[in-house]
Design a protein around this nucleic acid. Structure first.
Length: 464
RNA sequence: GGCGGCGUGGCCGAGUGGUUAGGCAGGGGCCUGCAAAGCCCCGUACUCCGGUUCGAAUCCGGACGCCGCCUCCA
């Protein structure tokens, strides 16, 4: 039984799915008007990990994540860069996928673009107008939040309380400051789509509710977002769905921030602001490991130091993979527990590991357990209990793989001929116990940036 | 103002009232021709003040500090 914190219930509860063995999830995707940053990276890693874990446990997961390719920010950016909205959207959508691919995040089963679902959005808004929960103004169509009795459940506040706290009224045409735009009438030179209530474009909240319902159907299982999406975005999606007599998401889950120092991740950090930057400068697996070592609902500190920390930890794991010649698993593929051959100790580890993850995706405890098992397997090997050690090591590899972390025995670096020759020369020197020469060659290799590790009769070199 | 969350050893980061989280860094040892890798041991941490308890990082109250949402945001 898999349990997950639910934002409406306010507690961890069983992830009861619409259909046993199947899980439909909608992962709120990016608005593509700029490069992805570390926060996006963490967010998509978290839900990639969740998806992989549910699959590993044997569930059949349908994963939908949208691309918001029309919205105010995109229009602004297009204006600023003197490009079309579409080219801005495509450019940054490409950057998004590039970063996702490097991070080893599996592509969604369906990745709808908002602009490809306009027809459904128009008829959805029309139906809300018909049923009287929406109204038109000179600049568009708005949703009347008072039409939904429990509006505010996701915010954790009743409507009155939200209304009292509402900030500057941006738009005096709205009946309530909390009412939100379903449809924005086209301004000159803005992209627009035809609609009976006036040409224009959909509001963000409408895009997501229409795409999620259309692709996953009523009563789909899991809807995710960052904490900041809880209100108003998700509240408003839900309000529209209920007002149009749909049953919406069964389960809501929100993930935590990336912190930089004592503040939410922001553009002011130069080095590691952009995810695009990070995945080019460092092994992207290090970021996955960093993300896995914290709980998905906690804020996570990401600085150059914590990245380096994770890279070193990853090094330990790759060294482990080298020692046991472990195959590189995961990658783009989903693993399933049923495909793994477990040794006795491996199965025991899997059971403890599974119990931790099934309880609200406790990846930090699960990862700690795997690190302990790395030590155990190394000890067993040191003691010459090779079969036991190998069995455990393979389980560790499979379990890291279940969360999408691939251990790489080769270090992923090709060894050039000159280096290979030096290694050979050093092995020859060691064979004749010419320690001075062996040490000299080692110094040369180290100076060239290699880490030199002796094994029985041979030398391994790798990059740091 | 309303709602929610957080303050853990050098750093990151878990934590169910009593038993080692884990990683990284640092110190000592074993192993090694010497290293590296690996293994073992070590720092005896929980913002502060009260309270409950045989016993609290963990529960309750208060103080201080910090963060988020209430506006576009993963």
């Amino acid at each position: 039984m898999i349990r997950l914190f639910d934002s409406i219930a306010g507690e961890v509860r069983e992830l009861e799915t619409r259909e046993p063995g199947h899980l439909s999830m909608y992962v709120c995707g990016p608005t593509v008007y700029d490069l992805p940053h570390l926060g996006h990276g963490r967010y998509f890693l978290i839900w990639d990990v969740a998806r992989r874990w549910f699959s590993f446990r044997g569930m059949d997961v349908t994963y939908v994540s949208n691309i918001t390719d029309i919205d105010d920010n995109i229009i602004e950016r297009a204006l600023r860069d003197n490009k079309s909205e579409q080219s801005v959207a495509r450019e940054f959508e490409d950057e998004h996928w590039k970063a996702m691919d490097l991070l080893g995040i599996r592509r969604p089963d369906v990745a709808p673009r908002a602009t490809e679902y306009l027809e459904g959005m128009v008829s959805f808004v029309a139906s809300l107008l018909e049923s009287g929960v929406a109204y038109t103004t000179s600049d568009g169509v708005y949703f009347d939040v008072s039409s939904v009795p429990d509006y505010g459940v996701l915010a954790g506040q009743p409507l009155d309380s939200l209304r009292a706290g509402a900030r500057v009224e941006m738009n005096d045409k709205k009946r309530s400051p909390l009412d939100f735009a379903l449809w924005k009438n086209a301004k000159p030179n803005e992209p627009s789509w035809p609609a009976p209530f006036g040409d224009g474009r959909p509001g963000w909240h409408t895009e997501c509710v229409v795409m999620s319902l259309q692709l996953l159907g009523d009563n789909f299982d899991l809807h995710t977002g960052g904490f900041d999406l809880k209100f108003p975005h998700h509240e408003n999606e839900r309000a529209q769905a209920l007002a149009s007599h749909h049953v919406f998401a069964r389960h809501w889950s929100h993930s935590g921030w990336v912190m930089a120092g004592n503040e939410k991740m922001s553009k002011s950090l130069n080095n590691f602001t952009s995810l695009t930057d990070l995945v080019q400068k460092t092994d992207p697996r290090a970021y996955r490991l960093l993300v896995l070592r914290s709980h998905y609902r906690s804020p996570l500190e990401v600085t150059p130091d914590t990245i380096v920390d994770a890279e070193r930890a990853l090094n330990r794991l790759d060294t482990f993979a080298r020692r046991f010649s472990l195959p590189a698993l995961a990658g783009k593929n989903l693993l399933r527990a049923s495909d793994v051959t477990w040794s006795a100790q491996g199965r025991d580890l899997y059971e403890r590991f599974g119990a931790l993850l099934d309880e609200d995706l406790d990846t930090p405890s699960a990862i700690a357990l795997l690190f302990e098992s790395v030590s155990t397997a190394n000890s067993l090997a040191d003691e010459g209990k090779d079969a036991e050690a190998a069995g455990l090591a393979n389980a560790v590899n499979a379990l890291f793989g279940s969360l999408g972390l691939t251990l790489v025995a080769s270090g992923g670096v090709d060894i050039d001929d000159a280096t290979a020759a030096l290694v050979q020369a050093r092995d020859d020197a060691r064979a004749t116990k010419d320690w001075a020469e062996a040490d000299r060659i080692r110094d040369e290799l180290v100076a060239a940036g290699w880490v030199v590790e002796d094994a029985a009769g041979t030398t391994h070199v790798r990059r740091t």
